[in-house]
């Protein structure tokens, strides 16, 4: 059983999407800092938690620890993604940030939610580590 097999791809995809979101955030900030704030507030933590998760999983020695770290960091991906899913389609961000940017981030947030669910459920199912570790 190798939890790294799927945890690393999950964190890699999340991190890349986080970087894309942060780049969009800088662009939106240029147009309207009050709206661009949200892009950065969600994308940057996800990119950092994904990077941290990947490194910590790699450094951990036993499978339970790897699974536990993977679950913890996947929760951050899931919950920040959940926040994005709720807030990016809101009228303020669609109007001030631009519909294209806002709806793109809604889709990215949905991907984060799905990746987060997989990153929580799979290690739990494979190792029995609690999902609320």
């Amino acid at each position: 059983m190798n939890v790294e097999r799927y945890l690393h791809p999950i964190f890699l995809i999340s991190m890349v999407l986080g970087i894309i979101g942060a780049i969009m955030g800088v662009i939106v900030w240029g147009k309207d800092p009050y709206a661009g704030f949200l892009w950065l507030l969600i994308s940057v933590p996800i990119a950092l938690f994904s990077l941290g998760g990947s490194l910590r999983v790699k450094m951990a020695k036993d499978i339970e620890t790897k699974a536990g770290i993977g679950i913890q960091h996947s929760w951050w991906v899931l919950s920040f993604g959940f926040s994005g899913l709720i807030l990016f389609p809101a009228p303020f961000f669609v109007q001030h940030g631009g519909a294209g940017y806002a709806y793109s981030m809604t889709v990215i947030s949905l991907i984060w939610v799905i990746l987060g669910i997989i990153g929580i459920y799979k290690p739990h199912a494979d190792t029995g580590v609690s999902i609320t570790i």
Binding site: L38, W75, W76, L78, S79, F80, F82, S83, G84, L87
Partner: peptide
């Protein structure tokens, strides 16, 4: 709490 705390930080 795991699901919603980041939401409040963002909100």
């Amino acid at each position: 709490s795991y699901l919603t705390v980041p939401l409040f930080i963002v909100l």
